[in-house]
Design a protein around this nucleic acid. Structure first.
Length: 690
DNA sequence: GATCCTCGAGTTCT
DNA sequence: CTCGAGGATC
């Protein structure tokens, strides 16, 4: 094929074909997004395609036909709503994704204003909803329209009238006032709506913005009314013919608030670029706890006179900037699916991804949980997948992009033999997890068992991490070298000389490790039981067992009926425990541990849970997020010392949720259930009262 | 038998 | 943090 430079006609034809294909794709995505409320690709991908098409059209202006998606921008027009031409166009803001862009924005503004001094900015969250314009004539709400393409939007007056947040009458002498703002659905209302959709067996909405869009574009205003939409005002359309009642944006917002328009309490005024970045960081930290979704923050030069001096570049104001958070979804390629072996032999498929930047970090791996999950999502090697890193920190493969599947993409099948030791793989009837049957013969399981044994919540051996365990279990560098450790008991026979022989282990570190191992010889019985790694016995059950049996001997001697006496132990757990202690191998390891000097501290009689309920005693707490001055573990210890209980999940029985920074779904759940939410200071107060 | 509440297990990246 | 599943409760 001829190169573009060589043959202009051929180049135009090729560009035309590419543009047509981009348009088809964009139209399909737009339809899925706006009309079906079921986005097929992340926003970032849509933007990328859009930009590609814009690029082509600017290079070959002949291709820029009026029906191109680039000539429309924004919502698909719906024949159901009348068009409204905005008196003052609703423009969009320039976006910034990095600090450098913010610095450049501030610098350009100062240069244009010829000002050395730091600029005062009005700042506010960038709501993730739909922009609307509300027109008031003689103080009466007359017309409400969506943004549409910025020039013309849809008349949704009847639906907007149903919003409690929008005043139908305002106390002003202005004969004409146009208020701009965002219609959105607050998270609580979104959760409630989806619950109702679920209960009725109808499709749930993907996110609050789509729910808001879908709700606002209902033909029946009664449906909109039931959806509990919210509105925040963020500006006034100022034309030359309309004098504004304030000379600063922040004062304008105060004025709107006085007119009973909802204005976010999270807005502020700051000074200079440092102030902007501080605000961005502060809102970012609080993002998860805000009652509504945001996708960044907006900066506006506060002085309206200065705004007018700065003016516009093409179609965006030079006095305002949207500083956006990194996308929480991104597309990438699935390079392969590996299978990992866990402590219990569980085989977990893990997606190996082409590295992709999402939610502020580069993601290369993501769990696929189990075989069924892979089937459900129809994930195949070679697929283009959408990776998400939402409220959760842990990335996941949200879905695949079916239209980008390469021919011959392979389906995943769980191996029939363990990828590590070759033992048979079994998947018990009715269970979701496949397991390696190799037990401790499998080096992966031995490795994980040792890591678990040494972990902080078990024997707490500091410094015994993955790298070291690998070397101790299977000396990779020198296959002939002796395996220093086969069971946890072997750890207690290591000396400084042996450890010092390992890679990256100078004498000092070797000494530290041996000392750490030595220091772990006096665990509580609960920790020791937990460290053994008995199936279905976690931290809590281990503690219950220790409390009930008091000694390791008594626990080991217990038969199933005796075990069933322990609270929260049922037939399955009892069988796991009995089976574990019945195995000669496990008995040998325990004997060896005791012989090596591991001696659980005697269980001290716990102050029998005082029958009386205190403010903390007898109450159930759930911890979430990062507390300002103490770790969650410390908080938990404090609560337990005061006779309270700490649980992992929020339910009706929860008395308090203690929330810190970046609290996630638990906080959300607490709000839904009406559970009291306190912060660290509140917790301290309760503890002081106890 | 159904429902709710917990616990256990597995996981990512800096 | 989320899922699956065990245990308790009605």
């Amino acid at each position: 094929m001829a190169g573009p430079a060589a043959d202009p006609a051929a180049a135009l034809a090729a560009a035309g074909a590419a543009a047509a294909s981009l348009r088809r794709e964009l139209e399909r995505h737009a339809h899925a997004y706006y009309v079906l409320d079921a986005p097929t690709v992340p926003d970032a991908e849509y933007d990328r395609l859009f930009a590609a098409l814009q690029g082509l059209e600017s290079e070959f202006p002949a291709l820029a036909t009026p029906d191109s998606p680039t000539q429309r921008v924004g919502a698909a027009p719906s024949s159901a709503f009348a068009g409204v031409t905005h008196r003052v166009p609703m423009l969009s803001l320039n976006n910034a994704f990095s600090e450098e862009e913010v610095v450049a924005f501030d610098r350009r503004a100062r240069e244009a204003l010829g000002s050395e001094a730091a600029i005062a900015y009005a700042v506010e969250p960038k709501f993730d909803g739909l922009a609307v314009s509300l027109t008031y004539v003689d103080g009466r709400f007359e017309t409400g329209a969506t943004r549409g393409d910025g020039e013309t939007g849809e008349d949704v007056t009847a639906n907007l009238r149903t919003l409690q947040a929008i005043p139908l009458r305002i106390d002003t002498t202005l004969s004409l006032l146009e208020v701009r703002g965002e219609v959105l659905m607050r998270r609580r209302d979104f959760a409630r709506l989806n619950e109702a959709q679920r209960a009725r067996g109808e499709r749930e909405f993907v996110n609050p913005r789509n729910a808001a869009a879908g709700s606002l574009r209902q033909l029946d205003p009664a449906i909109t009314a039931a959806r509990r939409l919210w509105f925040y005002a963020y500006g006034v359309a100022g034309g030359a013919d309309q004098p504004l009642p304030a000379d600063r944006h922040s004062a304008l917002m105060d004025w709107l608030a006085a007119l009973r328009f909802p204005v976010t309490p999270d807005r502020a005024t700051v000074c200079g670029v440092a102030g902007l970045l501080d605000y961005f960081a502060g809102i970012g930290a609080r993002r998860a706890t805000l009652p509504y979704d945001i996708d960044g923050v907006v900066y506006k030069v506060d002085s309206i006179a200065d705004q007018q001096r700065l003016g516009f570049v093409s179609r965006a104001p030079r006095f305002a900037l949207a500083h956006k958070f990194p996308a929480e979804e991104a597309m990438t390629e699935l390079l392969g699916i590996d299978v990992q072996v866990g402590r219990t032999g569980a085989l977990t498929p893990v997606a190996r991804l082409k590295p992709v930047f999402v939610g502020g970090v580069t993601v290369t791996n993501a769990t696929l949980h189990n075989e069924d999950e892979v089937r459900r999502k129809d994930v195949r090697v070679g697929d283009v997948v959408v990776v998400r890193r939402a409220g959760d920190v842990i990335p996941e493969v949200a879905r695949i992009v079916p239209e980008r599947r390469p021919p011959g993409a392979r389906e995943f099948t769980m191996p029939v033999a363990c990828p590590v030791c070759g033992s048979a793989v079994a998947r018990p009837e009715g269970e979701a997890i496949s397991r390696c049957t190799g037990g401790l013969y499998c080096s992966a399981q031995r490795r994980q068992a040792l890591l678990h044994f040494a972990s902080r919540r078990a024997m707490d051996i500091e410094g015994l991490g993955e790298k070291l365990v690998d070397q101790l279990v299977s000396p990779a560098a020198d296959p002939g070298a002796p395996r220093l450790v086969r069971t946890p008991a072997d750890l207690y026979r290591l000396d400084v000389e042996q450890v010092g022989g390992l890679e990256r282990m100078a004498e000092k570190s070797a000494r530290n490790l041996v000392a750490a191992i030595d220091a772990s010889r006096r665990p509580t019985l609960a920790r020791l039981v937990f460290a053994l790694g008995i199936r279905n016995v976690g931290e809590t059950t281990a503690r219950d067992l220790a409390r009930h049996f008091r000694t390791l001997d008594a626990l080991m001697a217990a038969d199933e009926p005796a075990l069933l006496q322990v609270p929260d132990v049922g037939p399955v757990v009892a069988a796991s425990i009995a089976t574990f202690f019945a195995q000669p191998h496990n008995r040998e390891v325990i004997d060896a541990l005791l012989a090596a000097g591991v001696a659980p501290q005697p269980v001290v009689a716990m102050p029998v849970a005082d029958a009386g309920l205190g403010v903390v005693a007898g109450r159930t707490f759930v911890l979430t997020g990062t507390l300002p001055t103490i770790t969650r573990d410390d908080a938990r210890a404090l609560i337990e010392a005061a006779g309270g209980k700490v649980s992992g999940s929020v339910s009706k029985k929860t008395d308090y949720v203690v929330a810190g920074e970046e609290a996630g779904s638990k906080l959300e759940k607490a709000r839904q259930l009406g559970v009291a939410v306190i912060d660290e200071a509140g917790l301290r107060e309760l503890l002081a009262q106890e």
